[in-house]
Protein backbone atom coordinates (compact mmCIF):
# COMPACT_ATOMS: atom_id res chain seq x y z
CA UNK A 1 0.00 0.00 0.00
CA UNK A 2 1.22 3.44 -0.92
CA UNK A 3 1.46 6.24 1.60
CA UNK A 4 2.99 9.63 2.24
CA UNK A 5 6.23 9.66 4.17
CA UNK A 6 8.73 12.35 5.02
CA UNK A 7 12.07 10.72 4.40
CA UNK A 8 15.51 12.05 5.23
CA UNK A 9 18.40 12.41 2.81
CA UNK A 10 21.32 10.25 3.93
CA UNK A 11 23.46 10.85 0.88
CA UNK A 12 23.08 12.61 -2.47
CA UNK A 13 26.18 12.12 -4.60
CA UNK A 14 27.11 12.74 -8.16
CA UNK A 15 28.06 9.47 -9.82
CA UNK A 16 28.58 10.76 -13.36
CA UNK A 17 28.48 14.08 -15.18
CA UNK A 18 24.69 14.36 -14.98
CA UNK A 19 23.73 11.44 -12.74
CA UNK A 20 23.15 11.28 -9.01
CA UNK A 21 22.37 8.64 -6.44
CA UNK A 22 20.26 9.71 -3.48
CA UNK A 23 19.90 7.50 -0.42
CA UNK A 24 16.82 8.25 1.66
CA UNK A 25 15.84 6.93 5.07
CA UNK A 26 12.17 6.10 4.55
CA UNK A 27 11.46 2.88 6.44
CA UNK A 28 7.69 2.69 5.89
CA UNK A 29 8.03 3.15 2.15
CA UNK A 30 11.08 0.90 1.90
CA UNK A 31 9.12 -2.01 3.39
CA UNK A 32 6.49 -1.70 0.63
CA UNK A 33 8.73 -1.26 -2.41
CA UNK A 34 8.74 -3.79 -5.21
CA UNK A 35 11.35 -3.70 -7.98
CA UNK A 36 10.11 -1.56 -10.88
CA UNK A 37 7.87 0.65 -8.77
CA UNK A 38 8.45 4.37 -8.44
CA UNK A 39 8.31 7.09 -5.82
CA UNK A 40 6.56 10.39 -6.48
CA UNK A 41 8.84 13.01 -4.97
CA UNK A 42 7.92 16.56 -4.09
CA UNK A 43 10.88 18.67 -5.08
CA UNK A 44 10.14 21.96 -3.33
CA UNK A 45 7.69 23.62 -0.95
CA UNK A 46 7.23 26.43 -3.46
CA UNK A 47 5.11 26.16 -6.62
CA UNK A 48 7.83 26.15 -9.21
CA UNK A 49 8.34 23.40 -10.14
CA UNK A 50 4.85 22.51 -9.05
CA UNK A 51 4.42 18.82 -9.70
CA UNK A 52 6.02 15.83 -8.05
CA UNK A 53 8.64 13.87 -10.01
CA UNK A 54 8.28 10.14 -10.55
CA UNK A 55 11.61 8.40 -9.90
CA UNK A 56 12.30 4.67 -10.14
CA UNK A 57 13.35 2.80 -7.06
CA UNK A 58 17.01 1.94 -7.69
CA UNK A 59 17.77 -0.11 -4.62
CA UNK A 60 16.25 -0.90 -1.24
CA UNK A 61 18.00 -1.92 1.94
CA UNK A 62 14.97 -3.48 3.54
CA UNK A 63 16.35 -3.98 7.05
CA UNK A 64 17.78 -0.48 7.39
CA UNK A 65 14.80 1.17 5.69
CA UNK A 66 16.88 2.90 3.04
CA UNK A 67 15.77 3.58 -0.52
CA UNK A 68 18.23 4.58 -3.24
CA UNK A 69 17.26 6.58 -6.31
CA UNK A 70 19.41 6.91 -9.42
CA UNK A 71 18.40 9.94 -11.43
CA UNK A 72 19.64 12.02 -14.30
CA UNK A 73 19.48 15.80 -14.17
CA UNK A 74 17.28 16.73 -17.11
CA UNK A 75 15.42 19.83 -16.02
CA UNK A 76 14.41 22.18 -13.28
CA UNK A 77 13.05 19.53 -10.92
CA UNK A 78 15.98 17.12 -11.04
CA UNK A 79 18.43 20.07 -10.87
CA UNK A 80 16.87 21.10 -7.57
CA UNK A 81 16.86 17.52 -6.35
CA UNK A 82 20.60 17.30 -7.05
CA UNK A 83 21.11 20.17 -4.60
CA UNK A 84 19.33 18.45 -1.72
CA UNK A 85 21.67 18.26 1.26
CA UNK A 86 22.21 15.48 3.77
CA UNK A 87 19.53 15.48 6.51
CA UNK A 88 17.09 17.42 4.35
CA UNK A 89 13.50 16.19 4.40
CA UNK A 90 12.07 14.52 1.30
CA UNK A 91 8.32 14.36 0.76
CA UNK A 92 7.66 10.91 -0.69
CA UNK A 93 4.46 9.44 -2.09
CA UNK A 94 4.64 5.77 -2.86
CA UNK A 95 5.62 3.22 -3.76
CA UNK A 96 3.48 3.52 -6.87
CA UNK A 97 2.81 1.55 -10.01
CA UNK A 98 3.11 -2.05 -11.13
CA UNK A 99 6.59 -3.45 -10.61
CA UNK A 100 8.39 -6.31 -12.30
CA UNK A 101 7.18 -9.89 -12.00
CA UNK A 102 9.84 -11.58 -9.90
CA UNK A 103 11.41 -14.79 -11.19
CA UNK A 104 11.03 -18.00 -9.22
CA UNK A 105 13.97 -19.68 -7.49
CA UNK A 106 16.90 -20.78 -9.62
CA UNK A 107 15.74 -19.18 -12.85
CA UNK A 108 18.18 -17.71 -15.31
CA UNK A 109 17.33 -14.14 -16.31
CA UNK A 110 18.78 -11.44 -18.53
CA UNK A 111 18.55 -7.70 -17.89
CA UNK A 112 19.21 -5.04 -20.52
CA UNK A 113 19.65 -1.48 -19.31
CA UNK A 114 20.50 1.70 -21.16
CA UNK A 115 21.75 4.83 -19.42
CA UNK A 116 19.76 5.89 -16.39
CA UNK A 117 17.23 3.25 -17.48
CA UNK A 118 19.30 0.76 -15.53
CA UNK A 119 17.78 2.22 -12.35
CA UNK A 120 14.79 -0.10 -11.86
CA UNK A 121 16.90 -3.18 -12.66
CA UNK A 122 19.19 -3.11 -9.61
CA UNK A 123 16.64 -3.95 -6.95
CA UNK A 124 15.21 -6.55 -9.32
CA UNK A 125 18.68 -8.09 -9.57
CA UNK A 126 19.07 -8.02 -5.79
CA UNK A 127 15.84 -9.90 -5.12
CA UNK A 128 16.49 -12.30 -8.00
CA UNK A 129 19.89 -13.15 -6.54
CA UNK A 130 18.22 -13.78 -3.17
CA UNK A 131 16.15 -16.34 -5.07
CA UNK A 132 19.34 -18.01 -6.31
CA UNK A 133 18.75 -16.87 -9.87
CA UNK A 134 21.51 -16.56 -12.39
CA UNK A 135 21.41 -12.94 -13.51
CA UNK A 136 23.15 -11.42 -16.51
CA UNK A 137 23.11 -7.67 -17.18
CA UNK A 138 23.86 -6.02 -20.50
CA UNK A 139 24.53 -2.39 -19.67
CA UNK A 140 24.89 0.40 -22.20
CA UNK A 141 26.03 3.98 -21.74
CA UNK A 142 27.48 6.89 -23.65
CA UNK A 143 30.92 6.53 -22.06
CA UNK A 144 32.83 4.51 -19.51
CA UNK A 145 32.36 7.15 -16.83
CA UNK A 146 28.62 6.46 -17.04
CA UNK A 147 28.99 2.78 -16.18
CA UNK A 148 29.27 3.22 -12.41
CA UNK A 149 26.19 1.11 -11.81
CA UNK A 150 28.04 -1.97 -13.07
CA UNK A 151 29.94 -2.49 -9.82
CA UNK A 152 26.75 -2.46 -7.77
CA UNK A 153 25.41 -5.31 -9.88
CA UNK A 154 28.73 -7.18 -9.72
CA UNK A 155 28.66 -7.04 -5.92
CA UNK A 156 25.37 -8.93 -6.05
CA UNK A 157 26.96 -11.65 -8.17
CA UNK A 158 25.45 -10.47 -11.45
CA UNK A 159 27.38 -11.21 -14.66
CA UNK A 160 27.80 -7.79 -16.24
CA UNK A 161 28.66 -7.00 -19.87
CA UNK A 162 29.03 -3.39 -20.86
CA UNK A 163 28.87 -1.36 -24.05
CA UNK A 164 29.83 2.28 -24.63
CA UNK A 165 29.05 4.48 -27.56
CA UNK A 166 32.47 6.17 -27.31
CA UNK A 167 34.44 2.94 -26.93
CA UNK A 168 36.03 4.03 -23.67
CA UNK A 169 35.03 0.83 -21.86
CA UNK A 170 33.58 -2.56 -22.70
CA UNK A 171 32.17 -3.19 -26.15
CA UNK A 172 32.40 -0.23 -28.56
CA UNK A 173 28.85 0.30 -29.78
CA UNK A 174 25.24 0.03 -28.75
CA UNK A 175 24.23 -2.36 -25.98
CA UNK A 176 21.80 -4.22 -28.21
CA UNK A 177 24.75 -5.50 -30.29
CA UNK A 178 25.64 -7.63 -27.25
CA UNK A 179 22.44 -9.61 -27.78
CA UNK A 180 24.09 -11.23 -30.81
CA UNK A 181 26.30 -13.16 -28.41
CA UNK A 182 23.41 -14.28 -26.24
CA UNK A 183 21.35 -17.42 -26.65
CA UNK A 184 17.77 -16.64 -25.69
CA UNK A 185 17.33 -20.29 -24.83
CA UNK A 186 19.66 -19.80 -21.84
CA UNK A 187 17.11 -17.60 -20.12
CA UNK A 188 13.57 -17.89 -18.82
CA UNK A 189 12.93 -14.14 -18.49
CA UNK A 190 14.13 -10.83 -19.88
CA UNK A 191 13.73 -7.42 -18.29
CA UNK A 192 14.65 -4.12 -19.91
CA UNK A 193 14.58 -0.40 -19.31
CA UNK A 194 16.18 2.41 -21.26
CA UNK A 195 15.61 4.58 -24.31
CA UNK A 196 12.69 3.51 -26.49
CA UNK A 197 14.83 2.65 -29.55
CA UNK A 198 16.95 0.35 -27.36
CA UNK A 199 13.92 -1.30 -25.79
CA UNK A 200 12.36 -1.76 -29.22
CA UNK A 201 15.35 -3.82 -30.39
CA UNK A 202 15.54 -5.78 -27.12
CA UNK A 203 11.84 -6.44 -27.18
CA UNK A 204 11.81 -7.73 -30.76
CA UNK A 205 14.83 -9.95 -30.03
CA UNK A 206 12.99 -11.49 -27.08
CA UNK A 207 9.77 -11.94 -29.01
CA UNK A 208 11.58 -13.46 -31.99
CA UNK A 209 12.98 -16.10 -29.63
CA UNK A 210 9.78 -16.60 -27.66
CA UNK A 211 11.38 -15.25 -24.51
CA UNK A 212 9.07 -13.87 -21.80
CA UNK A 213 9.88 -10.25 -21.06
CA UNK A 214 8.94 -7.09 -19.25
CA UNK A 215 9.96 -3.49 -19.87
CA UNK A 216 9.56 -0.24 -17.97
CA UNK A 217 8.26 2.97 -19.55
CA UNK A 218 8.41 6.57 -18.44
CA UNK A 219 6.06 9.46 -19.12
CA UNK A 220 5.31 12.88 -17.71
CA UNK A 221 2.94 12.45 -14.75
CA UNK A 222 0.83 14.62 -12.54
CA UNK A 223 -1.08 12.54 -9.97
CA UNK A 224 0.82 9.23 -10.12
CA UNK A 225 -2.24 7.29 -8.96
CA UNK A 226 -4.37 6.94 -12.09
CA UNK A 227 -6.67 9.88 -11.43
CA UNK A 228 -5.60 12.56 -13.88
CA UNK A 229 -5.05 10.39 -16.99
CA UNK A 230 -2.15 12.63 -17.95
CA UNK A 231 0.44 9.88 -18.51
CA UNK A 232 -1.53 8.15 -21.26
CA UNK A 233 0.55 6.01 -23.57
CA UNK A 234 -0.50 4.27 -26.75
CA UNK A 235 0.11 0.53 -26.27
CA UNK A 236 -1.00 -2.37 -28.41
CA UNK A 237 -2.74 -4.19 -25.57
CA UNK A 238 -4.80 -1.17 -24.54
CA UNK A 239 -6.14 -0.14 -27.95
CA UNK A 240 -8.34 1.58 -28.90
CA UNK A 241 -7.73 3.42 -25.62
CA UNK A 242 -4.54 4.30 -23.83
CA UNK A 243 -2.55 2.80 -20.97
CA UNK A 244 -1.85 4.83 -17.85
CA UNK A 245 1.88 4.54 -17.28
CA UNK A 246 1.43 5.31 -13.56
CA UNK A 247 -0.98 2.54 -12.59
CA UNK A 248 -1.15 0.14 -15.56
CA UNK A 249 2.67 0.36 -15.60
CA UNK A 250 5.34 1.56 -15.52
CA UNK A 251 6.23 -2.09 -16.09
CA UNK A 252 4.47 -3.80 -18.98
CA UNK A 253 4.84 -7.17 -20.63
CA UNK A 254 6.74 -6.75 -23.88
CA UNK A 255 3.81 -8.26 -25.74
CA UNK A 256 1.57 -5.40 -24.63
CA UNK A 257 3.90 -2.86 -26.14
CA UNK A 258 4.74 -2.20 -29.74
CA UNK A 259 7.72 0.10 -29.70
CA UNK A 260 8.99 1.57 -32.91
CA UNK A 261 12.71 2.36 -32.86
CA UNK A 262 11.99 5.97 -33.83
CA UNK A 263 9.40 6.48 -31.11
CA UNK A 264 10.79 9.72 -29.77
CA UNK A 265 11.70 9.76 -26.11
CA UNK A 266 11.91 13.25 -24.75
CA UNK A 267 14.46 12.48 -22.08
CA UNK A 268 16.30 9.63 -20.43
CA UNK A 269 18.29 8.71 -23.50
CA UNK A 270 21.16 6.27 -23.79
CA UNK A 271 23.52 8.49 -21.91
Amino acid sequence: MAALEIGRVLDNRQVARDKYVMDIAAPATARQCQPGQFLHIRITDTYDPLLRRPLSVYDVLFDSGIISLLYRVVGQGTSLLAKAAVDEAVDIMGPLGQGFTLPSENESIILVGGGVGVAPLLYLARLSRVRQCRVRLLLGAAGGAQLGAASRFEKLGVEVKTACLDGSAGYHGVVTDLLEHEDAGDYSRLYTCGPAPMMAVVSSWAQAHGLWGELSLEEHMACGVGACLGCACQLKAFEPGYAKVCTDGPVFNIQAVELSPDQARKEGHNE
Binding site: P49, L50, E219, H220, G230, C231, A232, Q234, Y242
Partner: peptide, 9 residues
Amino acid sequence: GNPPPRIIE
Protein backbone atom coordinates in the same frame (compact mmCIF):
# COMPACT_ATOMS: atom_id res chain seq x y z
CA GLY B 1 -9.37 10.83 -24.87
CA ASN B 2 -6.67 12.78 -26.66
CA PRO B 3 -3.37 11.45 -27.99
CA PRO B 4 -0.36 12.02 -25.72
CA PRO B 5 1.43 14.04 -24.56
CA ARG B 6 -1.52 15.20 -22.50
CA ILE B 7 0.13 17.25 -19.79
CA ILE B 8 3.07 19.57 -19.40
CA GLU B 9 4.24 21.52 -16.39
